[in-house]
Nucleic acid binder design. Sequence first.
DNA 1: TTGAACTCGGTTTTT
DNA 2: CCGAGTTCAA
Length: 647
Amino acid sequence: METLLTKMLEKEVLNPEQMQAVNHLEGPLLVIAGAGSGKTRVVTQRIVKLLEKGVMPHQILGLTFTNKAAGEMVERVRQATNSQVLISTFHSLGARILRESYNPGFTIYDEEDSEKLLKGCLDSIPLSDRKGAIKRFRHLISQSKNGMQGPIDLDSNEFETGDLKHFPDIYAMYQARLKECNAVDFDDLLFLPVKLFTEKSEILDVYRSRWKYLLIDEYQDTNQAQYEFVKLLAGKNQNLFVVGDPDQSIYSWRGATIRNILDFEIDFPGAKVIRLEQNYRSRSNILEAANVLISHNDNRYKKNLWSDRGEGDIIQLREFHTERDEADFVVKTTMSHQNQGVPLDEVVVFYRTNFQSRILEDYFLHYQIPYVIYGGISFYQRKEVKDILAFLRMIQTGSDFVAFSRTLNIPKRGFGAATLEKLQVASIEAGLPILDFCESILEGTHKIRVNKKQKEGLADYIRIIRHLRAFQGTLRDLVMETIEWSGYLTYLKSDPETADDRRSNVQELVSKAAEWEIRSQDGGLAEFLGELTLKSTLDQGGDSGHKVHLMTLHNGKGLEFDVVFVVGLEEDLLPHVNSKETIDELEEERRLFYVGMTRAKETLYLTRSKYRYMWGMLRYMEPSCFLDELPQGLLDTDREDDDMWLE
DNA sequence: TTGAACTCGGTTTTT
DNA sequence: CCGAGTTCAA
């Protein structure tokens, strides 16, 4: 009862800084919101305040990075005011703007699709080193788009050495082929709207007059394209409310730049800055240790978080001989907390890399403790799901070459890489969408050398796609018809090991289509497909009740738990080997650890193992340098294990 | 074109 | 150790 009461009070009572932020109405405002400082509450309350002051719900636009965060915020506002406001991810909003004002029917390519398209481009370029070339160039393209540089905006002086000199051509070719496919990639969802706004001011004006009040969450994670997008939309009146915490910036490797937050007052003159420094989440011992850790970062916006939740326990540091002992400890300690009344969903285990989850899973399974792993491959990234989605894309556009090459050989019709490339080049030359081009081959209008088997296969394929395109019925039925006509379930039987699993995933897609139809009356196949590719694992949620949560540190942002384990505090793991070259990289690793620590409300365990199996080899692991940075007085180091195991 | 044999590399991943 | 990508023979 008491907790319920305090929770209700917490909702009502805002501290002076929070109040100031909530009451801010016009002009640019930056809220530096430390971990656990009640950021979400402030954002929601501020929206509520705007509505009370007579702002119309449709004049408000909220932007987040995840669908989950967006959904939660929409729900909170709806509960408080019964109003429907638009809160969306940057990417969904970009897609929406492009469909409204640019081209309604495009396809969105995810990373895998983009890489396949890029691979085709690379084949015709004489590279001296093809190893890892796709990833390298894909990264360069992504960086260019994040930095708002199209192929013609590149500074050619920058790309003179070795294979890099091909980059401008590769980039241009990649963009051209995307266009042929009537597709955009994830980065285009930001890049293209910004270009559209800059080049066509009448379009920008439409959106400026639509959204008068902007709110941006996790501003420390925005990249340059997002910054420009926001700046353009904010326009003259600059009713821009951004919230972020530079100490929780952990996505710089994806183009996020802390500059956006550090230079906010320069970018938006007259901006007000409010700092939220009271932490309502953690016991002060945990918070103090986290503060000390993060103070080791030199490049930092200094602040000092404090908590009046009482000291609480000090931090438990445990060192083990092997990762099995570590996992065993995590599970047994979890069980003892459970016995003391802590619900399992108040326990989280954080690790730096996904492979570390394997051993933890083994032990949770062995002791029969329910757990759920967040992250990893999402439902929509599974091969079988993507195959069916690719068929649907062929039905929808007929120009999507990646979908074409993915589906043409299901089942095997004798088409290999060489023929596919030939078809792609020829169809571009003929100026026809790939599907029309294939039909013209069969009709003899265009001559491409194909053997008998291929010709029959092509005819069969086109017959199937034609039938599905002509299909009249609900989306759900279309998905079923597609599975049926593509012969996909038979095709799955070629691998009996996985067939059952895959079949149920494919069938799950039918339910998803049915669900979608109920939820959104309007919107065709393009919208359905677009929404799916913008969904990740984190959005699936589902049955997370009363289960221990396992996730990477990156996925921990925005969450809180009574009991937190951060495992694998070892050199080369945290900080990770590939992220200790520069100070900036090391500082980002430190922030990552900081994010992990600050998720804890009551109890924080840090563990490391002296030996660990990595890639099939037993390796000796040095303790993480971050452990030395923690205040020793706040650490409870149990030396027992050392006595047992040392030499 | 395709399957078998081989080499190589291997973080994080909101969308 | 494992999966993706490459190479090579049929």
